[in-house]
Amino acid sequence: MDELIFFINKVIISGTVIGSIYALGAVGVTLVFGILRFAHFAHGDMMTLGAFFTYSLVAILAAAGFSLPIPLGIALMPVAMALTSVAALGLDKGFYAPLRRKGAKPVTLLIASIGVTLMLQGVIRLFYGTSTRTFFESEPKDIFRIDMSWAGGTRPITITEPQAWMFGLVVVAVLALHFFLTRSRLGKGMRAMSDNPDLAQVSGINTALVVRVTWILAGALAAMAGTMLALDVSLKPDLAFNIILPIFAAAVVGGLGQTYGAIAGGFLVGFAETLAVFDWTVFLRPFRENLPEWLATAQGLSLVPTEYKLTVAFVILVIVLLVRPTGIFKGLST
């Protein structure tokens, strides 16, 4: 039983956490791709930016002696989401819109987004330095322990408070996004523009407004994903640069431009990563007496050594590109 609890803690919970973060990030990437038709490389740094907005707000309020029964990082996340949306609109107005007006091709916008990602990185590190920070300096990180003794387990299933919030908020976010895209006029306009930009224009859809809404959503989702990652682990200025690659992999695996595909891709990549580095020897332990010696004493029976965790996302990506180049759900072309 303890082995199963270990598996739940190490794979189910960790995989859901990282999968949620990838899914939120990949949805943002895929929305921007659907509307503006370019892979937005600066999305990872928008995540970092959002996390730093939350961090700064928390630091200010904590210094003022303010505290709430829920983690401040969760409580203040909506404000950071709004700030990041504004920042995303600013990035579009300052950097991408001028290029679009000149009739730049998607590949030019892609290169520009690499430029933007470098600028954001420079600015973030200029203000926040390069050190690692944590949200839980002024308040404790509560851990819920679900007692499993009724099932014969000696160890509990553990889940931290931010993780519990995260599961709830991700469900809320996905549902909200779903209703926005399928029920609201603007959401349908977004889907229309993603489906057929020329016809959207001909129909009189205000494409400039749709573009703005897209950036607002992308910024908010990025801030949410970034904050959650920072709450779960820690806040590093280069946090997002390591995460944008699996997020892209998730978006491509799901089919660029496909919102539900991105969610599926995010969880697929998240679980694949956790499962690939999971050490299966735990499950051999109960049967140790009956196993041949070489198997009973095996060390580290994981599919992939931990050092290669990052490559898992790309191996999936490569397989998908080889087998079904437009992703699991059919993606858009540029």
């Binding site: 006029r185 349908k188 889907r191 489906d195 057929n196 959207a200």
Partner: peptide, 18 residues
């Protein structure tokens, strides 16, 4: 390419009234 292929017939019509 005069319809939004991924959207339902009714949603196509709604887009005309955007």
């Amino acid at each position: 390419k005069n319809v939004f292929t991924s959207m339902s017939v009714e949603e196509n019509l709604e887009m005309g009234a955007f």
